[in-house]
Each structure stands twice: as structure tokens, then as C-alpha cells.
Lab assay of single mutants.
Amino acid sequence: KELVSALYDYQEKSPREVTMKKGDILTLLNSTNKDWWKVEVNGRQGFVPAAYVKKL
């Protein structure tokens, strides 16, 4: 599985998104959309802005 690192804090703005803190390591589930990537963090799945994470 592919991992990404959070470059910035992000506070979810809808139920489809997830909150992350800078430095968090997230499991990348889907990166086909260039703007929003689906990740899993702390057992929750949702979307984060692609520009806020980088692949490890």
C-alpha cells in the first residue's frame, strides 16, 4: 500500500473529508482525482486536498 505524509494541518469541512495534522502518515487509497485524494487516517476514510500531502 502507498503512504503519504501530511504537509499541513487540514480540518475537514464535510463528512466526506478527514482531518489530518502536519506530519501525519496516511494510507493513500485513491489518487485518480488531481485535486482530492482519498486516504485513511486513524481508521477513517475520506478525502484531503492533494496539494496538502506528498507521496513517501
Rank of each mutant, 00 (worst) to 15 (best):
K55G: 07
R16Y: 14
Q11K: 13
P15T: 10
S5A: 15
V41A: 11
S5N: 07
N42D: 12
T32P: 04
T32N: 13
E17V: 06
Q11R: 11
L29C: 07
K22H: 06
G46F: 08
S5H: 13
P15C: 11
L28W: 01
L56K: 06
K1R: 14
W36D: 01
K54L: 12
V39R: 01
L29R: 03
D35F: 15
K1V: 14
D24G: 04
T19S: 15
S14R: 09
I25K: 06
L26T: 01
A51F: 10
V39I: 08
Y10W: 11
S14F: 07
L26M: 14
Y10H: 03
L29Y: 04
E17M: 06
D9Y: 05
T27Y: 14
G43K: 05
G46Y: 04
S5C: 15
Y10T: 00
P15F: 10
G43H: 05
D35L: 14
K21W: 10
G46E: 01
E40G: 05
L29T: 04
L56T: 08
P49M: 04
N42V: 05
V18R: 02
K22V: 09
V48Q: 00
K38I: 14
Q45V: 15
R16I: 12
K21E: 06
V53H: 00
G46H: 02
A50N: 02
V41Y: 11
L7Y: 04
K34R: 13
Q11I: 15
T19M: 04
T27S: 09
L56Y: 11
E17N: 06
A50G: 04
A6F: 01
Q45G: 06
K22M: 10
N42G: 12
K13C: 12
R16E: 12
S14Q: 08
K34G: 11
K34P: 14
L56C: 13
M20Q: 01
V41E: 03
W36C: 08
V53F: 05
R16D: 12
M20W: 02
E12T: 09
E2D: 11
G43V: 02
A6Y: 01
Q11T: 14
K55Y: 12
K34F: 09
F47E: 04
G23Q: 03
Y52C: 13
G23Y: 06
L29K: 04
F47S: 03
Y52D: 02
L26A: 10
A50P: 05
S5V: 15
V41Q: 09
K38W: 15
G43W: 03
Y10K: 01
K38F: 15
D24K: 03
E40Q: 09
W37G: 00
S5T: 15
D24N: 06
N33H: 12
V39F: 00
E2F: 13
M20R: 00
A6L: 02
P49W: 03
I25W: 05
V39M: 02
S14M: 08
K55A: 10
V39G: 00
L28Q: 00
L26Q: 00
K1N: 12
N33Q: 10
V48G: 01
Y52V: 06
T19L: 03
D35H: 15
G23E: 03
V53G: 00
D24I: 04
K1L: 14
K21C: 11
D9F: 05
R44C: 06
T27I: 15
V41P: 01
S31I: 08
K38A: 09
K22S: 08
W36M: 06
E12C: 14
K1F: 14
E2K: 10
I25C: 07
T32E: 14
S14D: 11
K13T: 13
L56S: 07
A51R: 14
T27V: 15
S31E: 14
F47A: 02
V48E: 01
K54Y: 12
M20I: 15
T32K: 12
I25P: 03
F47N: 04
R44P: 01
V39N: 00
W37N: 01
L26G: 09
V4H: 06
P15H: 10
L3T: 09
A51G: 12
A6K: 01
L7C: 12
Y52Q: 05
T32A: 12
W36L: 04
A50E: 03
V53A: 03
N33L: 09
V48M: 01
Y10E: 00
L56P: 06
V53E: 01
K55D: 06
L56E: 08
E17Q: 13
W36K: 02
K1A: 13
P15S: 13
E2G: 10
L28A: 02
N42C: 09
T27H: 10
R44I: 08
V53P: 00
Y52T: 07
R44M: 08
E2M: 14
Q11Y: 15
V53K: 00
W36P: 01
E40D: 09
V4Y: 15
Q45E: 12
G23T: 02
R16C: 15
Y52G: 07
K38T: 08
